[in-house]
């Protein structure tokens, strides 16, 4: 059986992110490289955050699904360079996050205005209002901040732009 990296990528598309199951680990941007050698495959993944506890789960999930697909040897390696960025999340996946109730990262990491104290406008994923406020830079997981909508009053997670 011949496998191309593209075929493997389509298999990995079926693996949901362990904490945000509406997007796949491919859409999350953590799959960095795929090498196939006969029935052996090596997948390189990169962590979203250094301490992200989901990385071990992602590693196990990748191994499990590829074994199930008939690969005898599956090696999952962690790479750090280049560091993960939310810029790798495609627009379709951002829309999925929004529908799930998580405000997706706004714009790109090239926008550094928040460093000088300016806060970017984050739209409420429920009512799309721009009248929202930052509650905390740190939220329910490492990758999220906590916001609240001042119109519909819904508190929500914002996927930090890094």
């Amino acid at each position: 059986m011949l496998h191309s990296p593209g075929h493997i990528l389509s298999i990995l598309q079926q693996v949901p992110d362990p904490e945000i199951p509406v997007i796949s680990i491919v859409e999350l941007g953590v799959i960095r490289d795929i090498q196939v050698n006969g029935s052996a495959v090596e997948v390189k993944i990169t962590p979203t955050y250094s301490g992200c506890p989901a990385m071990k789960q992602i590693e196990d999930d990748v191994r499990a699904i590829l074994k199930k697909e008939g690969f005898e040897e599956v090696i999952v390696k962690t790479v750090f360079d280049p560091p993960w960025t939310t810029d790798w999340i495609p627009e379709e996946a951002k829309e999925k996050l929004r529908r799930y109730g998580i405000a997706p990262p706004e714009h790109t990491t090239q926008d550094k205005s928040w460093l000088t104290g300016k806060q970017k406008t984050v739209l409420c994923p429920r009512c799309r209002s721009a009248n929202t406020q930052l509650i905390s830079q740190f939220g329910s997981t490492a990758c999220k901040a906590l916001y609240q909508c001042k119109d519909c009053l819904e508190p929500f997670d914002y996927f930090k732009c890094i």
């Binding site: 250094s50 992200c52 740190f138 490492a142 906590l146």
Partner: peptide, 20 residues
Amino acid sequence: LEEDLALTNIALDTLGTAKS
């Protein structure tokens, strides 16, 4: 609550760096 979450997140980032 928010500070509890913040420090726990910062601890987690720092632990992740330590692990690496």
